[in-house]
Design a protein around this nucleic acid. Structure first.
Length: 316
DNA sequence: AACACGTGGTA
DNA sequence: TTACCAAGTGT
């Protein structure tokens, strides 16, 4: 049986994230925390730092909650039960089905973006997402075999990822080209139909990068909820829609702040961000109003979420 | 139901 | 450069 811990970890990392991006993170996590008990015993800050750059940081917070629940309530073993898995933090319908089928050989149907696309095309379903989900799930469930459901799940997702791709699918080499209704109707290119997305507003803000004479940087751990929750970041203003005046917020300490040349541009899921970066070198006796100094040797820019790392990069 | 929530690759 | 897209979940 595949190790449920590794299946769980990989499936959570793969939520909305490509295999290529996940690969190195998965290797580092499993080397550092080889089983669920080790992960449950980890420091929050260490896990968040190791997750930095992967995005969707609620996944990392829920990863720890889930590991600790498995240790406390399930004897450090993932339950071989779809409904019990679904109750765990960070495990939704997709991940519960993936762990059930791949780790435990239970015949539950996975419905991710790939399978949605494959089902919509094979059955020529023109209902818009997400309204089409129940219909797509019914088709996916009907196709899921009792025998080797995990292999089937990975196969159908691979089909979506490599052949039945969003743009210019390779219908000519598809194993399902004969039964596929969209291929017969020549509708594959427009399926699945999705409701158009709203335009992203542009927000502006300022961050303050203070370096003490001993090399320590002034950083803060962001609140557990909301954007970049639980992650390390630079103190700064709120990020708001207005351009005039540029939001400056309140510097975390009094210093000779100098704007760094250039600016940070970064796009989140639902807005574009333009950041002004202020920089100052400060003495050893300052006491900041926000955040705390972290020694040069206890901090790596790779511990930061990408937008914060971009701000750091302006100092290089 | 609709929205918040990251990032990097691709066309 | 911009817009879309990827092995979703929580509220």
């Amino acid at each position: 049986m595949p190790d449920p811990y590794r299946i769980w970890l990989s499936e959570v990392m793969l939520q909305q994230t490509t295999v290529a991006t996940v690969k190195d993170y998965f290797a580092r996590f499993t080397a550092r925390w080889p089983d669920v008990a080790a992960l449950a015993a980890a420091e929050d800050a260490d896990v968040m730092a190791e997750w930095a750059g992967l995005g969707y940081y609620a996944r990392a917070r829920n990863l720890l909650k889930c590991a600790r629940t498995v240790v406390a309530e399930h004897g450090s073993t993932f339950p071989a039960n779809h409904d019990a898995l679904l109750k765990l933090p960070g495990i939704g319908p997709y991940t519960a089905a993936a762990i059930s089928s791949i780790a435990f050989d239970l015949p539950h149907a996975v419905l991710d973006g790939n399978v949605e696309r494959v089902m919509a095309r094979v059955y020529d379903i023109h209902t818009f997402l997400p309204a089409a989900k129940p219909e797509l799930m019914a088709r996916a469930a009907a196709l899921t075999p009792q025998d080797r459901p995990g292999d089937y799940a990975q196969a159908v997702m691979d089909l979506g990822a490599t052949i039945c791709t969003p743009k210019s699918p390779a219908c000519g080499i598809c194993p399902w080209r004969d039964p596929c209704l969209a291929r017969a109707e020549e509708t594959a290119a427009v399926l699945p139909k999705k409701t158009p997305k709203k335009p992203k507003p542009i927000r502006h803000g300022t961050v303050y990068l203070a370096q003490r004479e001993d090399g320590a940087w002034l950083l803060e751990t962001r609140p557990d909820k909301g954007l970049l929750g639980g992650m390390l970041g630079w103190p700064g203003s709120d990020w708001i829609d207005t351009t005039e005046p540029r939001p400056e917020g309140r510097p975390p300490l009094a210093a000779d702040w100098q704007p760094l040349p250039g600016e940070v541009r970064h796009t989140f899921t639902h807005f574009h961000l333009m950041l002004t970066v202020q920089h100052a070198r400060v003495g050893h006796n300052v006491s900041p109003e926000a955040g705390e100094f972290i020694g040069q040797n206890q901090f790596s820019p790779s511990d930061l979420p990408t937008v914060m790392r971009k701000a750091f990069d302006l100092t290089r």
